[in-house]
């Protein structure tokens, strides 16, 4: 475990806490894409299948449980909770995310480390995570102004992926058999998707203005 990896995991944890805080404190999920949250549930369930079979460390197992339960809790709030579900921008959040699921699964069948159930699910979760933010970014562009908690949420999600890329670079130079080409490619694509958001986030931060995304 290197500092980049730990920073990445902590940043990722922050994104989950930001959402839970926003939903709990404001009893509102306006500006949050339910589709992105549902994709994240699929990502974590598909990736953490080995939770009970492949023990890595207490930290690893605890974090897996935290990510799976929190992502399910967020989807539960947005779908079931009587107060929160009313604030969901149903008509704005129209990204057809099932295409992303189908595409990622197709890719995972073609490109994986081994053609086993676990490896295909793992590759599927990596590809799906790379594109999971799309419905959220589209929703932000549609709703134009971004409330700062949601903006911070997307910012930290991007930052977590940048830390992971630094982690892979570090491991590449320090470990002999380190090759995660699937993670490399998907991670770079994922971070690239955030690039324009980071740009507008930086501009709004510099001008101390409201974050405006071009429609």
């Amino acid at each position: 475990m290197n500092a980049f990896r730990l920073a990445g995991d902590m940043t990722h944890l922050i994104t989950v806490l930001i959402l839970l805080l926003k939903i709990y404190a404001t009893k509102s999920c306006s500006g949050i894409s339910l589709k992105t949250q549902e994709l994240y549930v699929m990502v974590f369930v598909a990736r953490y299948l080995d939770l009970f079979t492949n023990f890595i460390s207490v930290y690893n197992s605890v974090m897996k449980v935290v990510f799976v339960t929190s992502s399910i809790a967020i989807v539960w709030c947005m779908r079931i909770h009587p107060l929160v579900r009313r604030t969901y921008d149903k008509e704005q959040d129209t990204f057809r995310h099932y295409f992303l699921v189908a595409g990622s699964f197709g890719l995972a069948l073609l490109f994986n480390e081994n053609f086993t159930f676990r490896e295909v699910c793992w590759a599927f979760s990596i590809y799906l995570e790379a594109v999971a933010i799309l419905p959220q970014l589209v929703l932000l562009q549609r709703s134009g102004n971004v409330d700062n908690l949601t903006g911070q949420y997307v910012f930290f999600l991007g930052a977590y992926r940048v830390f992971y890329i630094l982690n892979w670079i570090y491991r590449y130079f320090t470990e002999k058999h380190f090759s995660r080409w699937i993670s490399w490619i998907a991670g770079l694509v994922q971070t690239a998707l955030y690039a324009d958001f980071f740009y507008y986030y930086f501009i709004s931060w510099k001008n101390n203005s409201k974050l405006q995304l071009p429609a």
Binding site: D9, N54, I56, N60, M63, F67, N167
Partner: peptide, 10 residues
């Protein structure tokens, strides 16, 4: 042989 550290990341 190296420990099977497959997918030791989150």
């Amino acid at each position: 042989p190296e420990k099977d550290d497959k997918h030791d990341e989150l």
